[in-house]
Structure formats: C-alpha cells, structure tokens
Design a protein around this nucleic acid. Sequence first.
DNA 1: AAATGGAATCGAAACGTTTCGATGAACCAT
DNA 2: ATGGTTCATCGAAACGTTTCGATTCCATTT
Lengths: 325, 325
Amino acid sequence: MVSIKDIAKRAGVSISTVSYALNGNDKVTKETAAKILQAAEELNYVPHAAARLLKTKKSNMIGIFLTDFEGNFYGNLLQGVKEYVSSKGYDLLVCSGPQSRRLISERMIDGAIILDATFSDEELLQYANNGHKAVVLDRELQHPHINQVLLDNKAGATLAIEHLIEQGHDNIYAVSGPAGSYDALQRLRAVHQAIERVPGLTFTVLPGDFTKSSGEAAAQRIAAEYTRPAAVFCLNDEMAIGVYRYIRTHTDLVIGKHIHLVGFDNTELAQFIEPRLTTIDYSMPKWGALASEQLIKMLGGEPVENERIYVTLVQGASVTAATGT
Amino acid sequence: MVSIKDIAKRAGVSISTVSYALNGNDKVTKETAAKILQAAEELNYVPHAAARLLKTKKSNMIGIFLTDFEGNFYGNLLQGVKEYVSSKGYDLLVCSGPQSRRLISERMIDGAIILDATFSDEELLQYANNGHKAVVLDRELQHPHINQVLLDNKAGATLAIEHLIEQGHDNIYAVSGPAGSYDALQRLRAVHQAIERVPGLTFTVLPGDFTKSSGEAAAQRIAAEYTRPAAVFCLNDEMAIGVYRYIRTHTDLVIGKHIHLVGFDNTELAQFIEPRLTTIDYSMPKWGALASEQLIKMLGGEPVENERIYVTLVQGASVTAATGT
DNA sequence: AAATGGAATCGAAACGTTTCGATGAACCAT
DNA sequence: ATGGTTCATCGAAACGTTTCGATTCCATTT
C-alpha cells in the first residue's frame, strides 16, 4: 500500500513535511505543498485510518448501539442521527449485538449513543469511568461523561389514559412492556397515577414485552373475559398491532367499537391500519439529532444538560366515545 | 491507558511474551500465561484495536452500505447479516452516506456489502482493484474481488404480471422505479416480456421512484383516466402503499375491485393493510445471511459463485378475478 | 561582513501491537 | 562431561501516522 513515505520519496521531501502538507499545515510553502499533493494524487494515496487513530486517538466516528435491527422502529431515528453527525464531519456506525461493544472499549469510536437494554448500567458507568463519552436514550444515569435524552414517557402515558377516560371509558386495560425496560416502567407508573386520580374505574394490567405476539396474547385474554367495551392502552404500537391481528382473526369484536385501543410511538403501521390507531407521537429524527448534538458537544468538551423529547396524542378511530353506560 | 507494556512490567516478563500469552499462543508456559492473564485482568486491560489493525491488517469488521435508513425495508436484511457475521466472529457496521466510504478505502473494514445505488460501478471496481473485497446486492459487476447476490427480479415480475393476466385482467399498468436502479430495470424488462407474450392487452408504464408519493402520483393518473377495472403492478410495496393511500382518500374506487394491485417485497405493511396486498415475497434474512456468507468466504480466500435469491407470489385480496369482460 | 531572526524543512520518537530471529536454560543420549 | 535438541522467553523491528525539537537556509539588521 502506498504510504506517506512513498509520497515523500517521490516528492523529494521528508516524511514529516508530507504529513504537514497533507494536513494543510501552513508551515509548509505553497510550492512544496503543491508538489506533495500532486505526488499523493499520482500515487493514489489514501491515509491509513488505523495508523492515524493510533497516534491521534481520534477516529471521527460515533457509534449508535441498538438491541436489534428488527421492526421499522429505528429508521427515522437513525436518519436523524446520521444527518447531524455527518454535518459535523463524523461517521456513524450502527452497531448491535454483544460483540460490537468492543468498538467502545477498544477506542474505535469517539463516542456512543445507547438505545440497547442489553447494556447494563454498571457496564456503561465502567466505560464512562474509563473516559468514554456516551448519550443514553433508554435509562437515567448520573455521570460526568454520560448525558441523557429521554422520551417524556410520563406525559405520553398520562395523555393516553386521560384520553380514554375523557371518552367515557371505565373498563381499562394496560398492556405492559418487558421487565427491564425503563420506558415501560415509566409509562406504567404514569398509568397507575392517572388511574388513581379517577375513582370507580375497572383497571387491569396485562403482561407484555413490546412484541406483536405479546399483544395478541393480551387480546386473547381481553376477548375471553369480554362483557362490555374495553379500553386498552398498549405501551407501544407494536403490541397494539398484535391486538388488531388477534381481534380481527379470532373474534367478532370490532376495534373502535368494542375494543378501544391506544398505542405509543406512532409507527408507520399505526398510520395505515384501519381504523387508524390512536397513539402517542414524537419526532424520531429530532430525538436522534438531539442525541448526537449532545454527544458531539461532549466530545468537544462543552457542557451539556440532559434533554427531554416531548410527545403528543394523535387521534385515530381506534378510540371512540363510550356508548351510554 | 493500560497497554501490553504495563502488563509486561507487572508480570515481570517481556512485551512479546505478553502478546503471545494474550493470543493464546502455546509457546508460552501455562504458569507464565496464568500470571500474565491475571495481571491483565487486574489492570483492566483492553487491547487497542487500531494498533492491532495497523500491524495485522485485519479488523474483523465488515460493513454494509445502505442508501439511507428510512423505511422499514432493511431491518430483516440487517438482522440476517448480523447473525451470520457475528457467528463468524466479525462485527457488523451499518453505514450510510458518502462520508462513510472512507471506512473501505482506509481499511477499517475487511469487506463490504453494498446495497447503495449512490456507489458507482467505477468506484466499486476501483476499490476492488485496490484489493478490497465486496458483495454487491444491487448490480452486476465482474471482478475477482466482487461477488453478487441478486434477487430474482425477472421471476418476480413475471409472476406478478402473469398472475394479473390469469385473473382475467387486460388493462394493465406498471409503476416503475428510479432511473439508475438495477432492480427496477430488471423488473420492468420482465414485465415487458410477459406483456408481449399475450396479445390484446392495454398496457401503460407510469413513472415512479420507489417512494410512497410516487405511488400516489401514479394512482392519481390511473384514477383520472379510469373507465374500467385496472390492474396495477407497482415495482415495490412502498409505491403500492401510496396507491392505497391515494385511492382511499381521493376516490370512491375500491382496491381489489376497481383497482387490482400487486407489489414487490412483501413488507410488513403489505401484510397488515386491508385488503392484504398481493406481492412478491422473498426472505430478507436469507438474503443478508447469504451475502455475508459469500463475503466471509471471499475474505478467507475461498472461491465463491454468484448467487440468486428466489421469490414467490403471495396472494392477498388486493387482486381478484376480473368480472365479466 | 557578521550577527540575528524567522521560516521552511527535517529527523526521530512515539502511539500499541505482532512476530521474526536470537538467546539461554534445561534436558537427553552418548 | 560433552554436544545436541528442545523449549520458553526475549529484543527489536515493523505497521503508518503525527508532532516536538533541531537544523538549515535565507533575508534582514547592524
């Protein structure tokens, strides 16, 4: 491979001069610089990233860590991150799986964005203690090298439940999320609070894990004990889709009439399914962009504050007013 | 940062012995190895990837390059790639955007999977000439360092058109893909061939670019000139969804009755939309897994053959038999 | 004409590994 | 005891950069 050394030879200068010229250092004369650049061009030189990283300790790459690639959940988030970081001259690496953690510890990336429950808090604190910077999207963690950009789960869940109550529903279900999930915990907590504010409600929590099939299982239970219209808050859209699927294929009940449904995330599917799913919306690209902005500021040594992503309720026909009593 | 040198000091051995021990080389005695491993443990040693890469010229990372992250198209493909490569001890980096190309040229990754029309053929051949290995998913390219794993576009498009014809349709539209797309070109070519085989059909090609909004535009034209049932083959599902959206919100026509629709890709949305979209299905995870398998074989110097991903027709209610004449 | 200063260039060390060839110690057979 | 093997360990070079401090050269000042 052609290296800086080859350029030096061809241009008749020393290695260090080549390095300076290539990096646009103004110590080097216009003419020598031109000569060097031309030689580099002729030799088809490309720098060796690893060598440079070894010396400078800066890779200009940031990594985002996801639990998996499945579902269409992440697309817009990634897009937001990508656009921001590339505008700042960084590259984005999307990583998933336990193996990929070495990118952090082995200093291949300058910073990380974490949306991956398979990282433990201790692990992240450990990285932070070793000087690695991170922005976390799925937990709260206090450390000078860690910043948080979190969804306003509490507001979202409150909006969802209050909407159901306002529509006159008093037979309410919540379909929960997986055990370790911070988002699920926050949402569920807000649900309980909202429920407690209104006396006289029937309220049931059903287990769930954010997958379609757990939504189906919940729907099965709801259908089995059906006596009067039920209002169901699924802690994410994915499970709500599962509810649609089960209710449609296994029962005569109708979504928006017998089963009233609210989700969380406003995924693409939520917009296209009939009747349109009432759900909690927030801007994925903005979430990603904000997270990367915070991270890059941290890398530059700027102080940052924790941030929050605001949410709104979007109404579809999956929830209608309760009829009579 | 703690390096191999610190371990050497603490364990009272030379640097090279540490390196051997850490790499499990059996030249080194069990006892010294244990001593070294323990020292490494105590010091909380992590290897420095860049240094190793500089020396060994092997990063154990492979990159997959995508045009963008939008849509839910890629999730399952990535999942397939990820699972295969991590089973082989590689890390997967998902990359998008012009910046990320430097991961290839600067040898950060050992090989690349390309599904990104923004790479030109010349560019890829250039990489290959420089010794970089790649598997391409979206074009045909002859080079000893390049392998192809392609969808059977021709079979898919033929299935789609022949299905419409079998159902008795004779007023047929195709909504095309973006100009530079290999997949679109292949599909369209097969469409023409299938159409020509049957005399007496009305056939129109409408422009499209694989986005929902181009599907909507096509639907607008179809609706405007509507006189009798139309059978539409959208070259991907995304555009078919656009057709649904337009037809539903702007016309009184009914999908599966007035407008008969076939897509390509069998996306998640296609399965949930009503009526279910008739479309061409193939296994995304398998596509990804096969591509990575080929790539890793190439990296190991094994010979590989180009591969093809087979497709099938899945029928939904978006196409029904043409009524009478 | 000599001394001074600044600018351009250079040499060498360093980053953290791997790996080749050399060194030395311990063992065995004669 | 001697020489020959084997085996564990070591020293040093190398990978391709960056960057500090030293050197050279030229022009300016006295």
